[in-house]
Design a binder for these strands. Structure first.
Lengths: 337, 337
DNA sequence: ACGGATTTTGCACGCGCGTGCAAGAAAAAA
DNA sequence: TTTTTTCTTGCACGCGCGTGCAAAATCCGT
């Protein structure tokens, strides 16, 4: 019998009688911009303190149809960049009064159920930062369930029912491609991740097109099923293994840092080659690891914090104007390319 | 005007009239072990489908005082092991019908508000996988707010109001210490993280005690303010820099892999030394990175999945018996020590 | 101290579903 | 067919708070 079960559930009514006010005044005391006199608020807060009362956000959400809750659907937990995104998003959200429901999209078939899950909690918005949400899933999601807002974070989407907050992949890839050319690399290999969205303007497609346009040659490209360093290591291995030394790429351009890190590991430890002298590597995201002495990865930094802040702007703004937004990041030149 | 605002909120009543049953039957159709005939369930589900109805879990939680929601309070996002824990926990929880509220404990002062946050959502349990929850915070938390369950995951805690699910640090550290001795290392340096809990049986204390007991010597130990590879790199640098080569440790025993990885980076790239030939390194956790060709880290693997499953067992079991549990992991011998 | 302007407080009703039991329907037994 | 037994279905009440407005209290200048 701990002290807490003297009374099972302390409600605003209990606080009201103790403070000598009405229940509504109690709840007002906990609202930010409510019209309440400082004196009564203090009185109420003191009473709440002694009773250990905290407002019940379930009931508030039910009554107001506004939960201040967003669902964050995530897969691709092998990508270290996810941890960065999770931190920045939850920080921006929480700082500005929003809570986060983290939904692990277990596998490809789970995308629908995961969306359903969010819907059942009546969240104010659903944020997708995974890769397993193709257009088909989004379409059915939007028709079958009710989503107040469906936000794709850090990935562009041409779906009209969706708000996309992402880096301008075309501009970013152009900057990368120009850098690669300027540094005189001749035989790039593009290492891409899974292709779930019918993206005509993906990083890979953009890079390949730019390279063709400027050199006349079509660069090689390979892709893996997930943004997982280990998979990157394996595919670089099987790609380079049969090649004569002179046929090898002089740079591996990676869709993101997770792949770049795996590529570097492979180049250095499986082939005993030097980065960037033998084969250079370039990434995307600028994960914390990229700065480590081990990788010194040249990459492109996404402004995740700014994007997260904008996301909360979108949540707080219920206007109906187009809220898609593209951000510009910046290249971070280190030693790997 | 999207199709979804034909009717603002579709409730079980709407489905009921369409299906020709009562509202309660509708909700029963969505419950797992409800007594309902297959025929009517199908009829209800079909009606729900055409209306796009999904049960409202807010209302369900309010009415039943059971939310199937847990709060996960996390800080220490620099530690890559957090991503593993997040994945395993959310997977185990979601697979067995639990949702997760992810609360980013922004800083030391935020521990209280973060707990309050969870309390306001009336979660069925609060899980702490951060480091900023000392005994004081826990004590006030438990007295001031109502928590049905307060679970400390992957860290031992002697707090009686708390359920601790963790690896047996003493047994694990003993195994590590024995390994270090058996391999003939003579001058270990212990690299520890922040000391937030008044832990007499922490990994560091245990290692130091064991080493003293078996060799008579007290090993050096340093600690950093967070489980962050970059901090580990810096402190190893400042620790080794003034040392003569022959005074250097022959092995760095780290409280976890995040620190071990930073230590290896420093040893290899700041000092140009070889791991393990010049200085060996041993970690704890077995993060994915530890297996990479770059680190080949010898470490101790925590059975996170089993611990996560046990956590859900605890949630589903409302018995009052003591639910603390210690797990045994296993050493993973690679090349770093 | 007084009248009007302003701030502060109180309240009826509803948000959507769970609980536990009783009535009704169907199935099994006689 | 009738009587039990078992399975299905319906319902009154409450979970704790928000909304929007009206009543009450407080304030200001004169």
């Amino acid at each position: 019998m701990s002290a807490s079960d003297l009374q099972a559930n302390i409600t605003a009514d209990d606080v009201a009688v103790l403070a000598g006010v009405s229940r509504w005044t109690v709840n007002r005391a906990f609202k930010n911009n409510a019209s309440i006199s400082p004196a009564t608020r203090e009185k109420v807060m003191k009473a709440a303190q002694t009773l250990g009362y905290v407002p019940d956000l379930r009931a508030a959400a039910l009554a107001s149809d506004r939960s201040n809750l967003v669902a964050l659907l995530v897969d691709d937990f092998n990508n270290p960049h996810k941890l960065v995104m999770l931190e920045r998003l939850t920080r921006a959200l929480r700082t500005r009064g929003w809570d986060t429901l983290l939904v692990n999209t277990l596998d490809r078939e789970d995308a629908g159920p995961a969306l359903m899950n969010a819907s059942q909690r009546r969240v104010d918005a659903t944020i997708l930062i995974g890769i397993q949400f193709d257009d088909e899933v989004l379409a059915t999601a939007h028709s079958a369930r009710r989503f107040k807002k469906l936000i794709i974070f850090a990935r562009t989407s041409q779906n009209p029912d969706t708000i996309s907050i992402a880096v301008d992949d075309v501009a970013a890839t152009r900057e990368i491609a120009q850098y690669v050319m300027r540094r005189g690399y001749k035989r790039p290999l593009y290492l891409a991740g899974p292709r779930t969205v019918s993206a005509h303007l993906s990083r890979k497609e953009t890079f390949v097109a730019l390279w063709q346009e400027h050199t006349g040659f079509t660069p090689d490209a390979v892709s893996v099923a997930a943004y997982d360093p280990n998979l990157a290591t394996e595919i670089i291995d099987t790609t380079l293994r049969p090649m004569a030394a002179e046929d090898r790429p002089d740079i591996v351009v990676c869709e993101n840092d997770a792949l770049a890190i795996g590529a570097i590991d492979c180049i250095k430890h499986r082939f005993g080659l030097k980065v960037p002298q033998d084969i250079a590597v370039i990434g995307f995201d600028d994960v914390p690891q990229a700065a480590s002495a081990n990788y010194r990865l040249t990459t492109y930094r996404q402004p995740i914090s700014a994007m997260a802040e904008y996301l909360v702007d979108v949540l707080e703004n219920s206007g109906t104007e187009d809220m898609d937004k593209m951000f510009l990041g910046k290249m971070v030149i280190r030693d790997s390319a």
